[in-house]
Design a protein around this nucleic acid. Structure first.
Length: 567
RNA sequence: GGCCCCAUCGUCUAGCCCGGUCUAGGACACCUCCCUUUCACGGAGGUAACAGGGGUUCAAAUCCCCUUGGGGUCACCA
C-alpha cells in the first residue's frame, strides 16, 4: 500500500470540474488524466462536473466541447454529462446528477439557509463602490483586503437599501482561527488566523459562488479525492471552513503545479493571439489580409489584448502571415497530428514520473502506477520539441496498416482534399512512402501539398539548393552534364518507361551509370524538383508514381522551361 | 505589498523522506562522426546541473537556517 491510499475511504471517487469551455487546455487535460488514473487504478470512479455558476461566462451548447477532447484522449468518465462517443457508446450519466451546477440551485440554497439559520452566514448589502473603496484603503496601507462582518443593518438602513434596489449577497462568517490546509502533494500547511475573510457564498444573482458549490457538490457526489490546479491551494482553507460549518466530510486534497511555456510565462489560451499580434506588428500591417478576418473583428482585436480571435480567424491569419500558432488546447495538438496516447504519456511526465528511468508508457500503466507520492511540486515547462520526439517514436513504432488507418482518420477531419485527390491505393502508397519520416499524422499531408497542385500550375521554388541541383549558374567541366541536362534526357527515357517502381529505378540507374558517373542522386534531385517543385519529397520513384506518368512528363517540361528562363 | 508554496543539466526528470554505493543517472535538445538518391530515420561518441551563503556531521544533492530567484493567492471568476 502506498502512502496516499486512504484506509478509511475506498474505493476512491475523483472529479474533474472545469468551467464550461469549448476546448480542453493541456493543463486541464493533465489534471483530468491524473484524477482519472488515480480513481481507475484503485477501482474507483471518475466524475465530471460542470462549474457553470458564472452566468456571464456560461454560454451555449458548445460550452462542453471539451468533452470530445477528453474522450479522444482516452479519458472516460463514470459519472457526469452524457456524451455520445464516436464509437457509439454513451459516456456519463449517474446517480448524483445533475452534473451542471446551474441545475443544482435548490440544493445550494437549502444549505445556505442552514448556515444563515445557524448564524454562520449573513447577508451583506455593500455596493460594488463601497467594496472598491475598502480595497483601495487596504492597498494604501499595504495590507491585503479582508472583508469582516460590519454589523447588522438597522431597519432604517435596510429600508433605504431596498428602496435603492440593492440586493444582498450572503457571506460566510469565517472564524478567526488558523486553518490547516490539508494537501498530500505540497504537504499540510497552516494558514495564520485571519487570513480567510468573510467571503461571499451566494451572489447577488442568486447563484452560489464557486467555493460554496464545490463544497456542496463534492459532499453529495461522494468525492473522496480532490486533485486540482495549484491556484486553488489557498482556496482550500475556505472549503475546509465551509465543510466544518456544514458538517460535511473532508476529501483528500492534492494541488498540482501549473504548466508553463518555455519562456516561463503561464501557458494560456491567449498565447495564439500573442503570436499573431507580434507578427502583425513586425510586418507593419494596418488592415487584415484578404480572406482572413473581417475589418470589425480585426479592429476590435487590435484594440484590446483581452479580445481573442475565433479559431478559424486565427488560423486564417496565421496562414496569411506565415506564422505558426502555438498549440495550447488538446484540439490544437490533434489538428497538428499528435497521437492521443503520446499526449497523455507526455502530459503525465510533466509533474509525475514512475521512476527507474521509465519514460514511455500508456494509460494502462499510468493507471496502475499513478500515486500522489511521486507527483512533483515544481511547475514544468511544456517542451513541444520533446513531445514531437515522443510522437515521432510512436509513429515509427506503428504497424503499417495502423499508420494508414490513422492517417485516413486524420484526413477525414483535417485533410479532406487529399482524400478527394487520391484513391485508396494511392493514399496508401503516399502514407507508406512518407511514414518513416513523419513526425505527426499531419505530416504526410503538410509536406506533400505539391500533389494537390495541378500539373499546369505547380510552382517551382527558386532557391540555392534547387539551383545547385539543376546546375544553374554553375560552370561545368568539359563533357559533364548539368541537372537540367539530365532532366531533358530523362524526359524521353521516362516517356518510354513502364510506370512502375522497379522499372523507373532501373531505367534511371542505367542512365546514371552512363551519364552521371553512377551518381543517381544527381539525376534524382532534378527529377524531384520537377515533380514536386522543390528538393524535398518522398522517395523519388514513389513521388513519380503518385504524380503519375502524364503529370510527371508535363511537370518535367514545365520545369525545363522554367529553369531555362532562369539562367 | 500581506499570506502561502517551490528550487538537480537549456528542458522534462531519477536520486532527497531512510546522509556515505553520486567523480549525480535517463530522456529531449545541442555538438562531432557514421549511414544516406532529397528530407528524415537510424547508429556511435561528446558538452552540460545539485541557485548562493551559513550551519549539523567523520561524511550533505540529500537534514536545519538565511539570502536570492520563481510560483500561487488576496473577486458578487472559477
Amino acid at each position: 500500500m502506498d502512502s496516499n491510499s486512504e484506509p478509511l475511504i475506498s474505493p476512491p471517487v475523483t472529479r474533474f470540474a472545469p468551467s464550461p469551455s469549448g476546448h480542453l487546455h493541456v493543463g486541464g487535460a493533465r489534471t483530468a488524466l491524473f484524477c482519472w488514473a488515480f480513481a481507475k487504478g484503485r477501482g474507483g470512479k471518475f466524475v465530471i462536473r460542470i462549474e457553470d455558476t458564472d452566468q456571464k461566462r456560461s454560454s451555449d451548447a458548445a460550452s462542453v466541447g471539451f468533452l470530445k477532447d477528453l474522450e479522444w484522449l482516452g479519458i472516460r468518465w463514470d459519472e457526469g454529462p452524457v456524451y455520445n462517443a464516436p464509437d457509439g457508446s454513451a459516456v456519463g450519466g449517474g446517480p448524483h446528477g445533475p452534473y451542471f451546477q446551474s441545475e443544482r440551485l435548490d440544493l445550494y440554497n437549502h444549505h445556505i439557509q442552514r448556515l444563515l439559520d445557524a448564524g454562520s452566514a449573513y447577508e451583506a448589502w455593500d455596493s460594488a463602490e463601497e467594496l472598491e473603496a475598502f480595497r483601495k484603503d487596504s492597498l494604501a496601507r499595504k495590507e491585503a483586503f479582508r472583508y469582516r462582518f460590519r454589523g447588522e443593518p438597522t431597519a432604517e438602513e435596510r429600508a433605504k437599501f431596498a428602496a435603492e434596489g440593492r440586493i444582498p449577497v450572503v457571506r460566510f462568517r469565517s472564524a478567526l482561527v488558523a486553518v490547516t490546509i490539508p494537501d498530500e502533494v505540497l504537504g499540510h500547511t497552516v494558514l495564520p488566523a485571519g487570513e480567510v475573510d468573510d467571503f461571499v457564498i451566494r451572489k447577488k444573482d442568486g447563484f452560489p459562488t464557486y467555493h460554496f458549490a464545490v463544497v456542496v457538490d463534492d459532499e453529495f457526489m461522494c468525492v473522496t479525492h480532490v486533485f486540482r490546479a495549484q491556484e486553488h491551494f489557498t482556496n482550500t482553507a475556505k472549503h475546509v471552513l465551509l465543510q466544518d460549518a456544514l458538517g460535511f466530510r473532508r476529501p483528500i486534497y492534492g494541488h498540482l503545479s501549473i504548466i508553463k511555456n518555455p519562456d516561463d510565462s503561464k501557458m494560456s489560451k491567449r498565447d495564439k493571439d500573442k503570436v499573431l499580434r507580434k507578427a502583425v506588428k513586425e510586418q507593419g500591417l494596418s488592415a487584415p489580409p484578404a480572406n482572413t478576418v473581417t475589418h470589425e473583428e480585426w479592429s476590435s482585436w487590435l484594440a484590446s489584448d483581452n479580445v481573442q480571435l475565433s479559431l478559424d480567424g486565427a488560423i486564417a491569419l496565421a496562414t496569411a502571415l506565415q506564422v505558426v500558432l502555438p498549440e495550447i488546447n488538446v484540439d490544437d495538438f490533434r489538428r497538428s497530428g499528435y497521437l492521443p496516447e503520446v499526449i497523455c504519456n507526455f502530459l503525465a511526465l510533466n509533474g509525475w514520473s514512475p521512476g527507474h528511468d521509465i519514460e514511455k508508457f500508456d494509460n494502462a500503466f499510468l493507471k496502475e502506477r499513478f500515486g500522489l507520492d511521486r507527483v512533483l511540486k515544481t511547475p514544468a515547462k511544456f517542451d513541444r520539441v520533446k513531445l514531437l520526439a515522443f510522437n515521432t517514436d510512436a509513429m515509427n513504432a506503428m504497424a503499417h496498416d495502423d499508420f494508414v488507418t490513422r492517417c485516413r482518420a486524420h484526413a477525414v477531419i483535417f485533410r479532406p482534399e487529399f482524400l478527394a485527390r487520391l484513391n485508396a491505393e494511392q493514399f496508401k502508397l503516399l502514407m507508406l512512402a512518407t511514414k518513416e519520416r513523419s513526425k505527426t499524422l499531419d505530416e504526410p499531408f503538410k509536406s506533400n501539398a505539391f500533389l494537390l497542385e495541378s500539373d499546369e500550375s505547380l510552382p517551382f521554388k527558386d532557391d540555392k539548393s534547387v539551383r545547385k541541383a539543376l546546375g544553374i549558374g554553375a560552370t561545368l567541366e568539359a563533357g559533364a552534364k548539368s541537372g537540367l541536362d539530365h532532366l531533358r534526357a530523362m524526359h524521353s527515357i521516362l516517356a518510354a518507361c513502364a510506370w512502375e517502381h522497379d522499372a523507373l529505378e532501373h531505367a534511371a540507374m542505367e542512365y546514371a551509370n552512363v551519364h552521371a558517373g553512377g551518381k543517381i542522386g544527381s539525376v534524382a534531385q532534378p527529377l524531384r524538383i520537377a515533380a514536386s517543385g522543390a528538393t524535398v519529397s518522398p522517395p523519388i520513384w514513389d513521388t513519380l508514381l503518385l504524380v503519375g506518368k502524364a503529370g510527371t512528363l508535363r511537370r518535367l517540361e514545365r520545369c525545363i522551361e522554367w529553369a531555362e528562363a532562369l539562367r
